[in-house]
Design a protein around this nucleic acid. Structure first.
Length: 1023
RNA sequence: GGGCCCAUAGCUCAACGGGUUAGAGCGCCUGGCUUAUAACCGGGAGGUUCCGGGUUCGGGUCCCGGUGGGCCUACCA
């Protein structure tokens, strides 16, 4: 008779939850299912008192999603989902920024010269289609990431209702009296023929600019005055100020020379080959470099020492000197400016108020003309001076005119250095065309940062003042809230405050007009009689209403009545004819108004918003413009918390000088990636769509969650491999827990009640702590702490609690300790599914699908609420487990060499084709230990240790994974004696327990278990 | 040039207001199990906490100065 196979009597793990996730294939199926079931609608429909107003910063509707979007959108979804699971209503309305230059240019490129033939209305229609195309594409890609949102009802900045609200926001600024029209230099893109906002600039690292040093000949009075100071100056020899510029094209617009009043200047005496002498004025600290740059050989140069040691003099002494323009018949007076540096150039700055912000300010101070003879295309106009005009550069692009001007300067003897010299430096370029920009004075609409506001919530204060106060208020409310243990408020991370503060403090007036067609028009009416540009509150509000119903296209529709009834020119009172302003609003004004258009009026949302979350570049962009708009409309910031993410870069290995290899972060450059591709390297890691297609969005989400998003994040294959690995390990433990529960409705911890065993109670305590820790971490937007805590918890459970419990889970039959452990396993898998649901929405749903439903369980894990667990904390259990683990380490230390040695012997015997342990003297029975469960251990412990371990004494052998254990209490050095159990291993549980019966081969526990099993499973009638 | 920030093990991150021998997870090496098995368990190696000063009884942590990196910014005129 063969031995009975007891396998059927065991409670082994089982279940259909697959080890392989197959995410790439299954994620779309879940998405489809959720959509069909209306999951997000169901989430929003749950009755709740609390709302969380989370406002989406609109991505620009141009191009596919890149890593920055992935990072940002994933983080947003963590928040949406977490807040929902907390039981709050989070209506996330995804938005898109649809107007602006890049879209207009996509269309232009596709259409070519035909674009010019279209009316503004037709052009706008094309742009609308283009924007919609990308909105649709990005919407799909964002949804594919698993993002929750009202995808059927997004907000688009090109929707009429939105456009109307934008103008209402503009009306608020007008009402505050801080919108003005002025002639100021702005960054100008000649390629796009428009002014650009600060946030639309990009910088090119290796930009090449001409570098010219130019003489400005002093008037006769200059030499006279200087000779009073320097009597040895030769009479009749020319005196010149030397300037340096990288923009020779701005020289025609020169109106002054600026010096620093406190900088020291010297006069150089230069003997020329023809025997004549010239004098050159430069700053002392720069004299050397100027001499070098101009190639004046040293013998020709004589520093002039005057009045003893006093050879230098201060810039302030130069006041009143007047120099001649190098080619036009005009003068350039010396002015003072404290931005003049002593680190580059000559210390004398060529000043063209029409072509630079500093120059402009200096011009205002000294009453200089703001002169800018350059048109929209960046070409010189016939406003040029007669000499420059005679060079044939009218109609020439300023950058193309540079060499002409240099050559002419050389001809005129005004050029000090060699023609063709250049420097390589960083220079602003257009974000779209990548063409270099110029600074050009044009008439634009501005919002004043430093004008006192005439009305609103904070009259008498300037926009800048209130903005700075608001920044501090958020920071302060944040720290207060933090101290009370409430979620993070204000700036996350805290240094965001410094960043935006610095930016607001230093920014110039906001230039809000753009000379383009694709946007929201500035609804100003220019009086045909007197030319006055009218922009009144009533007018703006009137047009706002028009736009809200007909869209901004109405501005370009001659039949639309943009003039309000009874309207007359503010200046001359004319009522007959007006011309519509041709500018559109800066797109940052539009997106900055999004809270006003989307949240402020929605009963499901509100104002201010709880959270804005974007990349840290938005301190200059959206956070910044939203703050300013919020102050105009409501008198305060439109958000309570601003969280920022860093940037995604590429991880590169760098060998340091000391030979050590370090990994550094490099900005993701398309150029670099393209090079790699051409070299045949695998570049799939740089394309998030590829990761999704191969590994699944869940992997991207976990990657985001396990990084410190406030810092820059490095991209590498190794990092993704690691994320995949940690995903597997999380999934496997969850899988095992599911297999333990086996799809059965087990008792809850509460139902088990007093039958809860000490070790289960200990594990449950840990779970309760985990739940609470994760909640805090989520509230502080610290997602990696959630992942870290859960990973550590699961890893520990796998290594200790679950490993240990297997003994009774498999082998007991319906014992109290099985009930107890099952209850804890069930609570664990349920809680962790909910905890991880915001980060891993697909996997946790998979887990939820494999759990049996209890009454009241929702159909989806995403309709669950945050776990509410509680247990009275018993620290003696922690002490007990700690002590047991110390003991376990000690036992393992003794056991390990024995198991290893016997293992080696078995292996050797197999190779030598002999029976293992045939040398009986060397391998007595007691030394043949295959596994810890064969061991019978006698451990001597101290009294203290025994007391600590006491709560777990009933499961001590199991905790140590041993066949049997005996504990001797004896104060002194602890010791461990290990032998193989004397009896045979139990045929069912395979432990060498001391009470194994020879007849049945079963130990006592298994005998009872089998008896109960047999009683409940009557054998089928023998056939 | 200016502002803000970052630097701890191969990777991703910990280490309360300065306080034992700097930890975890993953990877790596290695042993075991074959009742979580393309899984699981044990053991091990691996760090001059970027460098140099300073304050302190004591520095990964605070201060100063470098180096490297990132974002933002600036008419290098």
């Amino acid at each position: 008779m063969s031995a009975r196979d007891f396998k059927a009597t065991l409670r082994l793990p089982e279940g259909a939850f697959s080890m392989k996730a197959d995410l790439a294939k299954r994620e779309p199926q879940w998405l489809d299912r959720w959509n069909k079931a209306g999951l997000y609608r169901a989430m929003l429909a749950r009755p709740t008192e609390k709302k969380f107003v989370f406002h989406d910063g609109p991505p620009y509707a141009n191009g596919n999603l890149h890593y920055g979007h992935v990072l940002n959108n994933t983080l947003k979804d963590f928040v949406t989902r977490f807040r929902s699971i907390l039981g709050e209503q989070v209506k996330f309305i995804p938005g898109w920024d649809c107007h602006g230059l890049p879209i207009e240019q996509n269309v232009e490129r596709a259409l070519g010269p035909k674009m010019r033939e279209l009316t503004p209305m037709q052009r706008r229609a094309r742009c609308r289609d283009e924007a919609q195309k990308w909105v649709d594409a990005q919407s799909e890609q964002r949804q594919r990431l698993g993002m929750l949102g009202t995808w059927d009802h997004p907000y688009l900045t090109m929707q009429p209702a939105f456009e109307g609200r934008v103008l209402e926001a503009l009306a608020a600024f007008v009402e505050r009296g801080i919108v003005y029209r002025g002639l100021k230099p702005v960054w100008w893109s000649s390629a796009e023929r428009t002014a650009l906002a600060e946030s639309e600039l990009e910088y090119e690292d290796d930009h090449r600019s001409p570098s010219v040093y130019v003489r400005f000949r002093g008037e006769a009075s200059v030499a006279e005055r200087l000779r009073k100071r320097f009597p040895t100056m030769r009479e009749g020899s020319p005196v010149s100020a030397v300037i340096w510029t990288t923009t020779p094209w701005t020289l025609p617009a020169n109106r002054a020379l600026a010096v620093h009043p406190e900088l020291e200047y010297v006069l150089l005496e230069r003997s020329k080959r023809d025997g004549t002498v010239e004098y050159l004025l430069v700053a002392e600290p720069l004299a050397k470099s100027v001499i070098a740059a101009c190639g004046w050989s040293t013998p020709e140069l004589l520093p002039r020492t005057m009045h003893g040691a006093e050879k230098a003099f201060l810039g302030e002494e130069l006041a009143g000197l007047v120099f001649q323009h190098p080619f036009e018949d005009r003068t350039a007076p010396i002015v003072h400016a404290d931005y003049v540096e002593s680190t580059a150039g000559t210390g004398i700055v060529h000043t063209a108020p029409g072509h630079g912000r500093d120059d402009y300010n200096t011009g205002v101070k000294y009453g200089l003309e703001v002169y800018s003879p350059v048109d929209d295309a960046g070409e010189f106009t016939d406003e040029l001076g007669p000499v420059a005009k005679s060079w044939g550069i009218v109609g020439k692009h300023v950058f193309d005119a540079n060499p002409v001007i240099s050559a002419k300067l050389e001809e005129l003897g005004a050029l000090c250095n060699a023609d063709g010299a250049f420097i390589v430096h960083r220079y602003p370029i257009s974000w779209r065309s990548k063409k270099p920009l110029l600074t050009r004075a044009t008439v634009q609409w501005f919002i004043a940062m430093d004008e006192k506001m005439a009305s609103g919530a904070r009259p008498g204060k300037t926009l800048r003042e209130v903005a700075l106060e608001e920044i501090d208020r958020l920071a302060k409310e944040g720290s207060l809230a933090d101290a009370e243990g409430v979620e993070a408020r204000g700036w996350v991370p805290a240094w965001g405050r410094e960043r935006i503060h610095g930016m607001i403090a230093a920014r110039p007036d906001w230039c809000i007009s753009r000379q383009r067609a694709w946007g929201v028009p500035i609804p100003a009416l220019h009086c045909d009689r007197c030319g006055h540009p009218n922009l009144s509150v009533a007018l703006v509000k009137h047009v706002a209403k028009l736009f809200a119903s007909k869209g901004a296209d109405a501005w370009y529709d001659e039949s639309a009545s943009v003039v309000p009834e009874g309207f007359c020119c503010e200046k001359c009172g004319a009522t007959d004819r007006f011309t519509r302003d041709a500018s559109i609003l800066d797109v940052w004004f539009e997106s900055g108004s999004s809270f006003y258009a989307v949240c402020a009026g929605d009963p499901d949302l509100g104002f201010p918003c709880d959270l804005y979350l974007e990349g840290s570049d938005q301190h200059r962009g959206w956070f910044h413009s939203s703050l300013l708009v919020g102050i105009a409309t409501h008198g305060h910031a439109p958000y309570k918390t601003v969280a920022t993410a860093g940037f995604v870069g590429e991880k590169v290995q760098v060998t340091q000088d000391d030979g050590k290899v370090k990994t550094k972060l490099k900005a993701l450059a398309k150029r670099d990636i393209e090079e790699k591709r051409q070299r045949g390297e695998d570049v799939s890691v740089y394309d998030p769509q590829k990761i999704i297609a191969v590994d699944g969005a869940e992997i991207l989400r976990l990657w985001v969650a396990s990084n410190d998003y406030t810092d820059d994040i490095g991209l590498s294959k190794a990092a993704f491999d690691q994320v995949k690995e940690s995903y597997r390990s999380i999934r496997n433990v969850l899988r095992f827990l599911l297999q333990v529960v086996r799809g059965e409705v087990v008792e809850t911890v509460a139902e088990v009640g007093s039958a809860l065993q000490p070790i289960d109670r200990w594990q449950y305590q840990k779970l309760v702590a985990l739940v609470s820790r994760c909640e805090t971490a989520y509230r502080h937007y610290d997602f990696r702490a959630v992942v870290a805590a859960v990973s550590e918890f699961l890893s520990d459970a796998s290594g200790f609690y679950l490993d240990v419990s297997k003994d009774w889970l498999y082998n007991d039959y319906k014992s109290d300790r099985v009930r107890s452990t099952l209850a804890v396993c069930d609570a664990t898998v349920r809680s962790i599914a909910v905890i991880l649901a915001p980060i891993l929405p697909f996997t946790t749903e998979d887990v939820w699908d494999h759990l049996p439903r209890r009454a009241g369980d929702p159909s989806s894990v995403h309709l669950c609420t945050w776990p509410k667990l509680s247990v009275e904390h018993d620290s003696s259990l922690e002490d007990a487990v700690r002590a047991v683990r110390v003991l376990r380490d000690r036992v393992n230390l003794a056991l390990e060499p024995l198991v290893s040695a016997w293992g080696a012997e078995k292996k050797a015997a197999q190779q030598e084709k002999r029976a293992p342990g045939d040398d009986e003297a060397k391998w007595p029975e007691s030394a043949r230990i295959d596994h810890a469960r064969d061991a019978d251990v006698v451990a001597t412990v101290t009294k203290d240790e025994a007391t600590l371990v006491a709560p777990l004494k009933d499961v001590l052998a199991e905790c140590l994974l041993l066949g049997a254990v005996t504990v001797n209490v004896h104060d002194g050095a602890p010791s461990v004696r290990v032998v193989r159990g004397a009896k045979a291993a139990c045929v069912r549980c395979r432990r060498r327990i001391r009470d194994v019966e020879d007849a049945s081969g079963l130990c006592g526990r298994c005998t009872r278990a089998v008896a109960r099993w047999d009683a409940e499973h009557p054998a089928p009638a023998a056939g």
